[in-house]
Design a protein around this nucleic acid. Structure first.
Ligand SMILES: NC(=O)c1ccc[n+]([C@@H]2O[C@H](COP(=O)([O-])OP(=O)(O)OC[C@H]3O[C@@H](n4cnc5c(N)ncnc54)[C@H](O)[C@@H]3O)[C@@H](O)[C@H]2O)c1
Ligand SMILES: NC(=O)c1ccc[n+]([C@@H]2O[C@H](COP(=O)([O-])OP(=O)(O)OC[C@H]3O[C@@H](n4cnc5c(N)ncnc54)[C@H](O)[C@@H]3O)[C@@H](O)[C@H]2O)c1
Lengths: 224, 224
DNA sequence: TTTTAATAAAGAAATATTTCTTTATTAAGA
DNA sequence: TCTTAATAAAGAAATATTTCTTTATTAAAA
């Protein structure tokens, strides 16, 4: 009852938010082709999404298209970047500089999307006090000390599953606002801590289920 | 109208499928503690999910719990593994042996979850005809030839965004049934091809949005 | 200038998913 | 044995999300 109104006000569906980076990525390629306008049916055709879904998604951002023409590419890109906060840089610490952690450190797109990884932590003595991709790596015991020097909003967890909760507790105690959890294990945390789980295993579960079942899903455009 | 019935028959919600690997992962830790039974409220407490959600999820798998006791841990694990097809091994080729591709190759859990990566492909002459983690790496031009020798169901795309569609087309032509796309760009494909997009950028979008907005989501337990 | 066709917008409807409510069951304790 | 409290089950209700339908707008073609 109270929630209903609140939601009507903020209003944007979670799946819409998840689609926005894909729109952004696609629109950049359009802009490179110097196309001033892009229409929902054109995007729909490329992205295999229902065109009315796209219009609806954009309408949550209060972008208006022009009948018979579409949207102004550059405006669309700018509004997406503003909404997604690409211009507001958030600092992050990453814990677990193994296979996946190293890949994340080298993922340059985070920088464009407004996240700056400013330090890495591990327990492996071989890599402590070295650098990966120009990022300084410290022992996990220095986490609190380093976050006191330069506070960060986001903690990225890329340690083995059985270590994840411990690292999460440390992050929470140290004052991070959001935890990005790649460990594949769910985390316990107070309500005011933002938790985002990226579970690669869920993706495999979907693939194997779809390979096994031969039934199509009912919603046609389930991209994410 | 037709769909409604079909769905009632197959019936399992997509978010449920995505949660199953997390349950599985958690239950393994319970089994290690030699706990014969586990109740929905106990799982709920650890995983921060509504207990009735958990009961509902399990009921889709036709697992019955026992009043006042819960579920038999080992049975639950077995049924999850069966449903998720962990015992049926699917072969996969991976294309793009860069930062992320290398991490995926070294991710041992895929093996337990019934996916076997049997060859890797790239264009970088320095790595072609070498091995990573005991996996043979070939030039992308040999993709068709290799898939003819040993057919695979799954193609994993981990190349830069502007190369992704080209690789997808090659995979489709070569007869893969499912494409797992990590490139961050949506792919066009015929309806009979299964596409699963794992977009790390969507995760960051959610985090940044939550950091910016201070409104909680309405569904309490949105883990994925 | 008039007509046509392509498009966005807005809202209704359909569908999906979660959460709440009630009931039945049963292990454990009185 | 009887009572109590914990639990699962089932279904109703609430909420979220997608898809469909209708309408209005307008660029381009006739
Ligand atoms: N590799 C992948 O492609 C992949 C995919 C999906 C999920 N994951 C998950 O990501 C996590 C890491 O995977 P990985 O393949 O990079 O493993 P990894 O073993 O290569 O890396 C883990 C790193 O964490 C460090 N570490 C361990 N305990 C620590 C602690 N208490 N404090 C700080 N650092 C610690 C280790 O020294 C190591 O460097 C795992 O939970 C895994 O399930 C990995
Ligand atoms: N690194 C990450 O953490 C990360 C995270 C999310 C998404 N991604 C996405 O995954 C993809 C790969 O990222 P990365 O960081 O591993 O990049 P990378 O540059 O390290 O690896 C890309 C690899 O693809 C190979 N390649 C390029 N064109 C090819 C072609 N036509 N055929 C075969 N191989 C080809 C390159 O030689 C290289 O080895 C990108 O689309 C990126 O956006 C990466």
């Amino acid at each position: 009852m109270k929630n209903t109104k609140d939601n009507k006000a903020s209003g944007i569906p979670v799946p819409t938010i998840r689609r926005l980076p894909l729109y952004h990525s696609f629109l950049l390629t359009i802009k490179n082709k110097e196309r001033k306008y892009i229409s929902a049916p054109d995007i729909a055709n490329e992205l295999q999404i229902d065109p009315t879904q796209i219009i609806k998604d954009f309408s949550y951002l209060n972008v208006k298209g022009k009948t018979k023409v579409g949207y102004v590419t550059s405006v669309l890109i700018k509004i997406l970047e503003e909404f997604l906060g690409y211009h507001i840089s958030r600092k992050a610490f990453i814990v677990g500089i193994g296979n996946l952690g190293s890949a994340l450190i080298k993922y340059h797109r985070f920088h464009n999307e407004g996240m700056e990884i400013t330090a890495g932590f591990d327990i492996n003595p071989e890599i402590i006090n070295t650098k990966t991709n120009n990022l300084k790596l410290f022992h996990i015991d220095q986490f609190q000390e380093k976050i006191n020097e330069t506070p960060v909003d986001i903690g990225i967890i890329v340690v083995p599953a059985d270590q994840a909760q411990k690292i999460a507790d440390l992050m929470i105690k140290s004052g991070v606002k959001a935890i990005w959890n790649f460990s594949g294990t769910p985390l316990s945390a107070p309500d005011n801590i933002i938790i985002e789980n990226t579970s690669i295993d869920s993706g495999l579960a979907m693939i194997k289920w779809k390979l096994h079942e031969n039934k199509p899903l009912i919603y046609k455009n389930r991209m994410l």
